[in-house]
Design a protein around this nucleic acid. Structure first.
Lengths: 342, 342
DNA sequence: CTGAAAGCGCTTACAG
DNA sequence: CTGAAAGCGCTTACAG
């Protein structure tokens, strides 16, 4: 058994007064005599009184806790976005219950249910790769619990969202290779599901089409895990086939780094013989030699924007009777960072 | 206002019975008739009943929530340790409230107080760099709230701890350079405070002393932020002074990567003219060319061990009257990974 | 200015 | 087998 902590009642008994009075004194109600107030304050301090937030949450119907569900924790993008979420939640007096879906739909459902039962004030989620249908989020609508999706969002679900324009960014990346003179541009894409990879693939195709370059299935590879290893292996495949690419657009920096290493392992010069561009602008892009040209993505800002939108909704909801406000959809800017690999 | 959620009372009214009966039926008490039980279960399902965990926490005195305080979120080591903490907390039915001290003592105090008021079942902490005295943790002792420290621990505070042997690992790293024939080994150390950097410095000195190599202050540099940039700048200083080192032990891989880049910028060959070893075995160590030799640290395992120790204490405490069990101190193994930079 | 009472959503010892 | 009552720690409308 853990030890008894001081409650309002303890203070009241010690002072021969009521919990009502103690509560009011502590909360600085106007209808308490100065003498009583001082006595209560003093005793509360002496007894190390700290309010029990469980009771407050139950009573007030507000916990000042926000639930977060992310696909992965030990991941460059998510830990940075999380940093943005936490710093700004902190500023506004909220704390975070952090959960992970580990990219599994089943876990995502479980975490959501838990956060719902926990009565968090709102939820921020980046969908699991497995998640296609988002029916499980309907319960939040039903009980008017604010939710904001970021990065891995669902197109059809109505809620506020923060993301980048993956298609446009991929278009920019691919067009950059075209402008640099590449004729045969390969794309090592992400898995079929998360919307991001699909959109990046679309941007790639759009740029090629616009420049009247035929899309060649031989030059398109699809990752499962989106790792350095996959980037390495696919690039070796690409570079040893008859129809070799002279440019590669990699779906992430991890894959791009693998691509550079693969080219080097075959004695192919980057950028002279092969130009490579990544996506994300993570630290590894600056460490690999030649440095990886990439698309910069505002990780921290994405998290920050998401939490600010969510808190705005939470606090709006406290005032109005019913939630019929407009959902916001913010698309944050990306930009190309030119380095040595192109 | 958020919408009303189904409570036991709602079900009871609908069924013309009492909340007591509903509660018991839901919890499968033996003294409920099968008919009632079925009816309750059915209605609960129909009305989408979900228990309110705030009420449970208040009633049971247990929240199944663990508070975590880490110095940084967007950090390779901490996000991996956190991954270990979360995965294993999950398995045992606990969730995490994640907070960060941002390496500030003041924030650490604030987060601790919050978690205390929140009545979490236990706390896992890695101390802020600023934290020297840990008096603020005494309150946990007073109320018998289990706490486990990991990585950045305090020597004198009595509680369970998980870490690695920084001194020994640093000794191994330095000795490795000596065995490779280095005569003048520099050390780019961390800031004066966190115990880790001090211990690593001790290990460095010990190895030199044992090999009768004099410790030369000219060869010792002290980082503030422990970044690639600092590693780069200090290494350039070291390599342009009269008394040049032929080996560098860097306090982290970040610093080690900066060191390699600095050597390259001066046309000094690694490992032929200068051998470099890092600490942590993070991804960047495998990406830099030449690859960085380093000390492997079990990030995920550290988190996993910490959470398992904590849950053990929490559950023990539920059974016994008072907490007088032994604190565990686990030192996890590290090992040297030889790569190209030595 | 003070305090008894009701209530937030649950559990459980106890009486019937 | 069922349910009224007390209680977890707080808040607040209301009566005095």
């Amino acid at each position: 058994m853990t030890k008894h902590r001081t409650t309002l009642k303890d203070i009241a008994i010690k002072l021969g007064t009521s919990t009502t009075t103690v509560s009011k004194a502590l909360k600085d109600y106007p209808d308490i005599s100065l003498a009583t107030k001082m006595a209560v304050l003093k005793m509360a301090k002496k007894m190390n009184y700290e309010p029990d937030m469980r009771a407050l949450a139950l009573k007030n119907g507000k916990s000042n806790i926000i639930g977060v569900i992310i696909p992965e924790v030990a991941h460059h993008f998510f830990s940075n976005a999380l940093d943005g979420i936490m710093k700004h939640a902190e500023k506004k007096g909220y704390k975070i219950i952090l959960t992970s879906s580990y990219n599994s739909l089943k876990k995502e459902r479980k975490q959501l249910k838990f956060l719902f039962n926990k009565k968090v004030d709102g939820i921020i989620v980046s969908l699991a790769n497995e998640t296609k249908k988002v029916k499980h989020f309907d319960i939040l609508k039903k009980y008017e619990i604010p939710i904001v999706m970021f990065d891995k969002v669902n197109e059809s679900f109505e809620c506020s969202k923060v993301s980048i324009d993956d298609e446009k960014s991929a278009y920019v990346a691919t067009k950059f290779l075209l402008d640099k003179g590449c004729k045969k541009i390969a794309h090592i894409k992400g898995p079929r599901h998360p919307l991001n990879s699909v959109s990046r693939f679309e941007g790639y195709k759009k740029a090629l089409e616009e420049h009247n370059v035929e899309i060649n299935p031989e030059l398109i590879k699809e990752c499962k895990e989106v790792t350095i290893e996959e980037g390495y292996n696919f690039t070796r495949e690409l570079l040893t086939q008859v129809n070799k690419p002279d440019g590669i657009f990699a779906v992430t920096d991890q894959v791009g780094v693998g691509a550079i290493q693969a080219a080097q392992s075959l004695g192919i010069k980057v950028p002279e013989e092969l130009k490579i561009i990544g996506f994300s602008d993570s630290q590894i892009a600056t460490i690999i030699r030649p440095n990886l040209t990439t698309i910069h993505q505002p990780n921290f800002e994405i998290g920050k924007t998401a939490i600010n939108m969510l808190i705005k909704e939470i606090e709006l909801l406290e005032k109005v009777e019913t939630a019929d406000f407009e959902y916001e959809q913010q698309i944050l800017d990306t930009y190309l960072v030119e380095r040595e690999s192109t």
